[in-house]
Amino acid sequence: MGNMLATIVFCSFFTTLVFAIVERTGIKVKLLDCWNPRKLPPVKDPNRIPRGNSLVEIGALVVFFTFFCQVLWPGPVIDLFGAKIMLALAWRSFFWAYTVLAMCSLALSGVNLFRPYWTTSRAFWRLLLDVAGGAMFCWLLKAQLLLGISAPNLSEAKAAELTTLVTLIMAKALPWAVVILVAIFLMSSYRLFRVWSRDRRRTPIMPPVNGVTTSIATGS
């Protein structure tokens, strides 16, 4: 500990001494001549939405929603690549609820594409949609909607085992889904708070009166 403390003291002393000599003697350091603050990259605005992200969201939603509607359309039996999947009637409610959420998310991503910056209202809707989607997924894992699976080359015993295995996996995945939901809620809440704080810090400006703009905050 003593050696480390001595090393820190000596380094601090000689570093200060070198800079003091450079400042007093007027010696120019070439390294400082090469440094120009104007060449630094611009500060990233955390409230700006990259258009690439919006395009990826729109593409993913369109592809998944198309697959979701064509393959998992609610019915007595769902044909999934040759396998017959029997789901409970509650699947119909989940299907239509997810459809509404997907359409709302698609609309929000479209708005973000053409207006690539977060506003308080859009951040709130993003929070609401994220939490609703995560909550629905957790409900899907907990509801145990899978009633049975059958396939041409699958015996009844194997089908029952597969159904039990899938149900067990969904039940074990529920706690992790809840953790992810909480993380999504915290991140979306932070974004909403950040945007709200930015809007709150802005100085409100009164409409011009007789050609003079008046600031409420300064009264000038």
Rank of each mutant, 00 (worst) to 15 (best):
F65T: 11
G75D: 12
I21R: 02
T99P: 12
A102E: 00
F14K: 02
L17D: 02
V43L: 14
F95D: 00
P42D: 12
V56L: 09
C69W: 03
L72W: 12
D33G: 00
S105Y: 06
E57F: 10
A83T: 05
C69P: 00
A60F: 10
L106C: 12
L89C: 08
L89A: 13
V56Y: 13
R24Y: 05
A88E: 06
A102G: 03
P46V: 11
V111R: 07
I27G: 00
E57R: 13
G52Y: 09
F81S: 15
F94S: 01
G26E: 07
K30W: 12
C11G: 05
P74I: 13
V29I: 14
T99R: 01
P74A: 10
D45A: 00
K39L: 05
F67D: 14
L31R: 09
S93E: 02
E23W: 13
C104K: 08
F95C: 00
F67K: 11
P76E: 03
V77M: 07
T25G: 06
D79F: 10
L80C: 14
C104W: 13
L31H: 11
T16F: 15
A60D: 09
Y98M: 06
V18Q: 06
K28T: 08
R51K: 13
R115K: 09
F114H: 07
A102Q: 01
